[in-house]
Design a protein around this nucleic acid. Sequence first.
DNA 1: TTTGCCCACTCGTCTATACGAGTAAGCGTG
DNA 2: CACGCTTACTCGTATAGACGAGTGGGCAAA
Lengths: 262, 262
Amino acid sequence: MPSLSSGLLGDLDPTSDRAVFRQIADQLREAIDRGRFKEGEKLPSEAELVEHYGVSRMTVRNSFSVLQGEGLVHAEHGKGVFVRPRPPVRRLASDRFARRHREQGKSAFIVEADAAGSHPQVDSLEVKEEKASQDVSTRLGSVRRVLARRRRYLLDGRPVEFATSYLPLDIARGTPIAEPNPGPGGIYARLEELGHRLDHFEEEIRARMPSPDEVRTLRLASGVPVIHLIRTAFDQEGRAVEVCDTVMAADAYVLSYQLPAT
Amino acid sequence: MPSLSSGLLGDLDPTSDRAVFRQIADQLREAIDRGRFKEGEKLPSEAELVEHYGVSRMTVRNSFSVLQGEGLVHAEHGKGVFVRPRPPVRRLASDRFARRHREQGKSAFIVEADAAGSHPQVDSLEVKEEKASQDVSTRLGSVRRVLARRRRYLLDGRPVEFATSYLPLDIARGTPIAEPNPGPGGIYARLEELGHRLDHFEEEIRARMPSPDEVRTLRLASGVPVIHLIRTAFDQEGRAVEVCDTVMAADAYVLSYQLPAT
DNA sequence: TTTGCCCACTCGTCTATACGAGTAAGCGTG
DNA sequence: CACGCTTACTCGTATAGACGAGTGGGCAAA
């Protein structure tokens, strides 16, 4: 059978000064927006579109690359080009570090994911002492070396977040914080037990395109940005006791904050 | 003179299974990261790279498109391909809506930008009544029609943010809030004067690639995501009195929040 | 039936070529 | 000197063709 697309897609406007590949991208985008192609569904193949529009294959591929850059579709070698499904998002609420959430045994990530019916995992655990980067050193108040705790979070097998915590050695060395598993309530519970009663957190949020490294560790599709969150924890003496650097797949997260109007 | 690039760029590895255009992208990326090409500087032209690597022009263009997708470079027709300069970022602190900031005459955006030495502008003002979207209606508690206040913010001539505030008609109609210029302290000051004493805000943050529309209104370079922020303002009776939907150029913003450890 | 191969279809990579259009500098003319 | 043209260089768009490699179904052989 010839192009299934015929019914769903229109013709090109040769008088338009809009580039042909843009016109094709526009039509595909609109068809997707209108739900003519649903999430996960296969778009017409390159060959079909070449046929339908009477253009060369590179032109069709150019259209697809536009849509890929917008994060709308993704290509699978040997299979086709598909409408990118929106994954379930993880909501991070601003009270997620409240003391009351810290009393339980399991980490917030596990508890929350279980509740949402998905399968959580944490891997790539690494705990080691290292030299503090300029930025981390500044945030922690001029420390030279730090304890770094790295881990990757996965939901239903998909990596969604990569995080590194940095703590001053004089606080963390020789404590459960320096163990791979710091115990119930996580490192914040341990910090409080060690006498660093937490006062508040500061979070800085940026969004940007991922580095090739991040594309690899988070298995990101093209057209998916990352949210870069840097949290600093302060104890009641005003000392920065931890910096946590987190990179999240932006399509898997919604951050939520509550601000006083005071 | 032949390629200036010769000194800065290496050779291809024909034995590698990494695609040629990726190898070229890798080398350019690394050169940029190492500072061999500085912000705003011109990369070697397509022709020079064709010459240097002995590949076809489409292969070089493919490399550039990879880097463009990463937001590292941008092309200017007739001029060349340049390392994308990081614009000055605007910091949004979580206390930006505190009452004490609301007493002055000018809007927070103007005050802040002036202080930072940049030239702020607000344009595309539009104030009108319209049908509430499903989402806005839900957030405001099932209102059918709303007052919508749209505006675009620019820094030194560059659009950085596009925002729309939605307010229930029973609150806003016939008040200064329905005027293009709501007066000193903005609409939050007016809301409080009207007896809606503000209690707190809720902010939801997402990051994603921009729609073609957003690319146009924010004049976004390719490879620049947007931060999508939805703020809901609640008064002391617990009623949602405003929803503000904001789309920001992600390369121009850092959001900063302070969370209690309680 | 099961195994394994082949083939058709898919996207990925690369070449070669052509023309269009924006930019900027040089040069000659008025 | 000032203006406008030419020209060389830049990226943008599009064509046509070639080969490679992943996927999955069908068919033939064991």
